[in-house]
């Protein structure tokens, strides 16, 4: 709906700002304030300090950032490759089969992540599939949870791709592999980068399943934050949260730059 009058537009903007402010910015601002708070008993903290940051940085932060980034990178890469592969091969199947398999991919996102973690824990607790207590099971959990998004993104990209490009390429003599590498994948690149960014961000924030399966020595950022706050160390948890937010933001901005350069816009 378009609002044309000046006052109408003003009201709309104020509403939007309020909604955005209350729902998105307020929680973030509170976390930011907590991460810098000396003591917080009244309406506002009684003083500001960077003590919590030095505390978490000298403590678990380093290894947690590392664990989260590695997990995110590997799980997203794996999800990107398999999601792309699945989307490309499902495209060749009949409509009904495509719909069915496409739906299967999305089941993990409909199940609570805690249940996914529990399922993996039970499934991989006996030889020969003994993965409990390994880093691999964390990767698998993340992969299961995010692959639906990569698949969905790449499928959407493929659906928008005019078949003309690939057909012209074929008629010019390009074999399927050459065509895939030089035409299909480059044309899909924006969707691939978006899919990668989204799954990386999802993985960085994943808690439910990770908490069920993580081995000692592979504590991701959300798990660290969870245990800090669980212990009542709210301020340190807040500081670590800000680090997580910063890391994710930097990552997404970086990816955006890459896409912009690749598509030349």
């Amino acid at each position: 709906m378009l609002v044309w009058s000046r006052s109408g537009r003003l009201v709309l903007w104020v509403l939007f700002a309020l909604l955005f402010g209350v729902l998105f910015l307020a929680p973030l601002a509170v976390i930011l304030l907590s991460s810098l708070a000396d003591q917080w008993n009244g309406v506002l903290p009684s003083g500001l300090t960077t003590e919590h940051y030095s505390e978490v940085v000298s403590g678990a932060a380093g290894s947690a950032v590392k664990a989260s980034l590695i997990t995110g990178f590997l799980a997203s890469t794996l999800a990107l490759v398999s999601g792309t592969w699945a989307a490309l091969s499902l495209r060749l199947q009949g409509h009904a089969l495509r719909r069915l398999l496409g739906l299967l991919f999305f089941i993990p996102s409909a199940v609570p992540s805690v249940s996914v973690g529990l399922g993996l824990l039970v499934a991989f607790s006996h030889p020969p599939l003994l993965l409990n207590g390994t880093v691999a099971i964390v990767m698998i959990a993340h992969f299961v949870l995010i692959s639906a998004f990569t698949f969905g993104n790449v499928s959407a990209g493929l659906a928008r791709l005019s078949p003309d490009f690939e057909q012209v390429a074929s008629s010019l003599g390009a074999r399927p592999a050459y065509r895939l590498w030089h035409v299909t994948l480059p044309l899909l690149a924006p969707y691939l980068v978006a899919a990668f960014g989204l799954s990386f961000a999802l993985s960085m924030g994943e808690l439910g399943a990770t908490v069920m399966v993580y081995p000692p020595g592979w504590v991701t950022l959300p798990v660290s934050i969870f245990s800090l706050t669980d212990r009542g160390d709210i301020f340190a948890g807040a500081a670590l949260t800000m680090i997580l937010v910063a890391a994710t933001l930097i990552l997404l901005l970086g990816l955006e730059r890459i896409t912009a350069r690749a598509t030349g816009s």
Binding site: S162, D164, F165, Q167, V168, A169, S170, S171, L172, G173, A174, R175, R179, V183, P186, L187, A189, T263
Partner: peptide, 20 residues
């Protein structure tokens, strides 16, 4: 024969030039 072995040239309505 598959399209890539037919030795043809094809021009379609919207050209389908590879944008990249």
């Amino acid at each position: 024969l598959p399209p890539y072995e037919r030795g043809l040239g094809m021009v379609v309505q919207n050209y389908a030039l590879f944008p990249h």
